[in-house]
Design a protein around this nucleic acid. Sequence first.
DNA 1: CCAGATCACTTGTACCTACAAGTGACACCG
DNA 2: CGGTGTCACTTGTAGGTACAAGTGATCTGG
Lengths: 154, 154
Amino acid sequence: MAAWRRLVAVVELLPGVLDGQLRRDAQLTHFDYHVLAMLSEAPHRVLRMTDLATRTNATLPRLSHVVRRLEERGLVERAPCPSDGRATNARLTEAGWATVRATAPGHVATVREHVVDALSPEQVTQLAGIADALLRRLDPDGRLTGALDQSRRP
Amino acid sequence: MAAWRRLVAVVELLPGVLDGQLRRDAQLTHFDYHVLAMLSEAPHRVLRMTDLATRTNATLPRLSHVVRRLEERGLVERAPCPSDGRATNARLTEAGWATVRATAPGHVATVREHVVDALSPEQVTQLAGIADALLRRLDPDGRLTGALDQSRRP
DNA sequence: CCAGATCACTTGTACCTACAAGTGACACCG
DNA sequence: CGGTGTCACTTGTAGGTACAAGTGATCTGG
């Protein structure tokens, strides 16, 4: 079978595996986790909704709903931005931070189990190059990989 | 950044690209397309719902809803299986077959554009090996890749 | 041969996501 | 300063997916 077809199969199956593990272990969607993880890496664990949306590849409506649900669970807080009245800052609460710390190891272990351990060291190196090349097309601005321009700050 | 994190980013972005192209060009979900494609490759273009579910990595309820919608659009027909009264056979109609033929080239072109053309020939070869290794963990029975046991037939 | 278990679905309900419309807040131009 | 346009969200509605329960048909043991 052609290489691309196998890639499509991987792309079809892997999200389900990652999502399932997080749902079981932390009652979080993979997207939820991504939101919390991005916040946890930000300075003061605060980000504008717009920045958070680009970092998670989400539309603003979708992010708004998700953050509202996370806020109801006490993992995130929202507050109007002092410097720009239009903007909203999302901040990771202590409970949210604790959730990330408790969840990250299991998530990383799942990825390791299903990806890294399935490949030889050379293949891991090759994969890095391949993923890099693909992301230059899929995500030219590096929004998901953290190479975002840092000019605007909350 | 680690290789696996870039892979996760790819896995996050690629489905959206594939889905978007099919929605625009054929008003089909990527999952819808996968259902039609599996039927188009089956003998007589007929498959049991259960077989179709494993081949598309879907739960039976999900498949049932999707096939109902495809049936309403005239792309698929359902009929009770003659040999097993419990089973339902899904058959690709002429309209469905025409849709697959009309849609496949654009879909393949999209994959080519975003994947194959982004990589060097060596990388494509490497990717085949990597995807193979990953699928041995993610899909040990080869359900999505067509290596399914062929004992039960409609 | 028939009661219970299993199988192959279908249907119903709840949740999540996408798209569209609406609401204040800022920015620029005269 | 107003008025217009844009920005940054929020809310509402429709469509898709997951989980749970229900319906016949088939198998199995006594």
